[in-house]
Design a protein around this nucleic acid. Structure first.
Lengths: 218, 218, 218, 218
DNA sequence: TATGAATGAGGCTTCATTCAT
DNA sequence: CATGAATGAAGCCTCATTCAT
């Protein structure tokens, strides 16, 4: 119970108790979902009294929203954006294959590190429009331009052929996401032996496609 | 409330009441998630008394499991498999592009028709191993062989280049899934104007890849 | 606990459980006030489970309103109005002194019988406009016309001198109310030895006033 | 919030903080009743920390008792008694009608000025014997002798006819009280147009009674 | 002395489950 | 077999009170 160390969310603008509560909530929401989690459990996990939760969050729903806002904020502004910005700004002279590999590994690591949170976000987002809006706001503002610009630049540099950036992005995200899901959730039935090789082959497929050029693609 | 017609689940081996309950549960689980749905709501939607639910399902949890089993059974054996089997068995003489398009449209239609159920299944599967196992069992037994064999056959026929079927499958599923999610959940922020063109471009990307061949692919 | 007999409120249009709940609520509200009464206490007093209360009344506040509506309804239509109508319709040949005495005794008995309820009503009415409105609606519709007409008739019959009925009514109600309050709440410090004599003297004062006519009233 | 000026209760023997707390408590108790008022609200209104309340009053209940004692003390000794003593000592040469009018106006003004407090006192007194005792003690000691002596003197002076003082007092208090209640609480349904005329007619009724002397009073 | 964060008992309310009809 | 009133455990939340600062 209530480990203080290694808090994923306790960052700057919120105090120590609030961070502990958010961490605990995140952990148990990820385990059982929002509705099935009790405020009592969260309090025990956070090592505080149940009532204390409600000094920081008016209701359990507010706690969820606060959590999601933190998540989105942190994911986007502190964790997710900077490394990808760095990678995307240091592409000169690199082969597109290596760039994509670097990005995919980085993104996989990111999602896998925060997979519990991701589960909370996704399962709630699936049901509730208001939660989708919190996430989408950030994606629209930060992720789309960043990735879109990158793809457009790659096209300009001649590293990839002309294409609509959102379709390329969807392809890349789809492949990465399913890879993570398989590793995290389906590892018993569909284990991945050599992850690096798996990534290599995935990128190869994305780059060169299914088509059999030698036979003319029919 | 309690429409008897057009029951998605009322199939054969379960009687009329049981089917009505499962239909109602499915509908409301999809809307609000399992924990947030009350048996009272289900009963009202099914047009029966609350107590009657417990004649057919020992607990609410049993109801969920029963529902998921039905869903997986039906999705796999009655709805999902037959059409794809048909498509996959009539590929001779067709271009790979058209085959993929046919499959993608068919799969999208399938998922979109049953999107509410899909949401239930996915959000519960994200949290609970036992539920994942129910689904995965069917996928391992039926879907993987079918799709794997198809890809292998395409390779043999020279329509696609040699590749590992599970990677190709992941790519195809990833693209299709995100396309559906975008259409269903993100339509406000990321609308898709012309779905057929979107599919065409997605398949084109899958077939021929990102790479700019003319420039040598670097 | 939970006596079924002698229910003050269990009248016709509400079923047995609902009546038991209202009776219990009435008893404890009168003892401790609305806010200080717990739904748990009410349930114990009514001899039912706490949850059952909420099958009949959405919230504790709704229970209070239901109670007040019943009280006002019963007080006005079943208990309060009929006897006074009877008295007021049989005044021919009687001295005004005897009529007033009859009315006062009847009204005192009525209020004293329902004094616990009266306390609930008054203490809530003091604080909340919405509750005052429930009561006043009935008074405006039923009590005022009845008493006003009576006073006007007495004036016409020459039994009392011309006067505004609402002032006479206020005087009569004020005297009666304080008499009841003294008997019920102040009996330790200001006991009333002979209630009939007290009533006689009160009516004598109302009829003939303070003024000393023999000295010219100055 | 927390105006320091014009404190009703901050008088002499209690220090500034204590006075602020009592003032705030009084204001909010009057608005919402004792149980429905939170110590947090009181603290905010008083402009102090919640914990500070408990330096001055052991519990919330003690705060109520302290408040009531202050109220009764101030009402009786500082506010209520002196003016009435003055009026009652300057009656020579005045008509009884004018004396009563003067007293009634003075008492109405007094009650109306302190109506919020009066509501607290009354609603709590209705429920709790111990609170009634605090009030009645003061009334027995100070008010009754004062008013009783005045009435007896009026009788001796021949200004009113011989009567028991407590009955006359009850009549006067009843009329005055209901007049205030009507003005304060029932103004929407039973408005009073011309208050001075209303008082005149009420006093006239008290002085000369209902009886129609010309017809012989039958 | 004053603070206000923290507490935790206890309030109101929900809801899966039971059972007499 | 079907019902739905009743149950009571348990959830969310409030708030008087305490105590370290």
């Amino acid at each position: 119970m209530h480990e203080q160390d290694d808090a994923l969310l306790d960052e700057g603008n919120l105090n120590e108790k609030e961070g502990r509560i958010l961490d605990a909530a995140c952990k148990i929401f990820a385990l059982k979902g929002f509705s099935a989690t009790t405020t009592n459990e969260i309090a025990k996990e956070a090592g505080i009294a149940e009532g204390t939760i409600f000094r920081y969050f008016k209701t359990k729903k507010h706690l969820l929203h606060g959590l999601l806002k933190q998540l989105v904020h942190i994911m986007a502004d502190r964790i997710a954006i900077p490394p990808i910005e760095k990678i995307l700004s240091q592409t000169q002279g690199k082969a597109i294959k290596d760039i994509l590999k670097e990005v995919m590994i980085d993104r996989m690591a990111l999602v896998e590190k925060h997979f519990p949170l991701a589960k909370v976000v996704l399962s709630e987002a699936m049901l509730h429009q208001d939660i989708r809006d919190i996430i989408l706001g950030k994606i629209t503002d930060r992720v789309m331009p960043l990735m879109g610009d990158f793809i457009d630049r790659m096209v300009l540099e001649g590293k990839i052929r002309p294409m609509k950036s959102h379709i390329a992005l969807r392809c890349f995200v789809g492949n990465t996401l399913l890879l993570v899901v398989q590793r995290q959730l389906l590892k018993d039935k569909f284990p991945i032996e050599d992850i690096e090789q798996e990534i290599d082959e995935t990128i190869d497929l994305m780059l060169y496609g299914f088509a059999n050029r030698e036979k003319g693609g029919i």
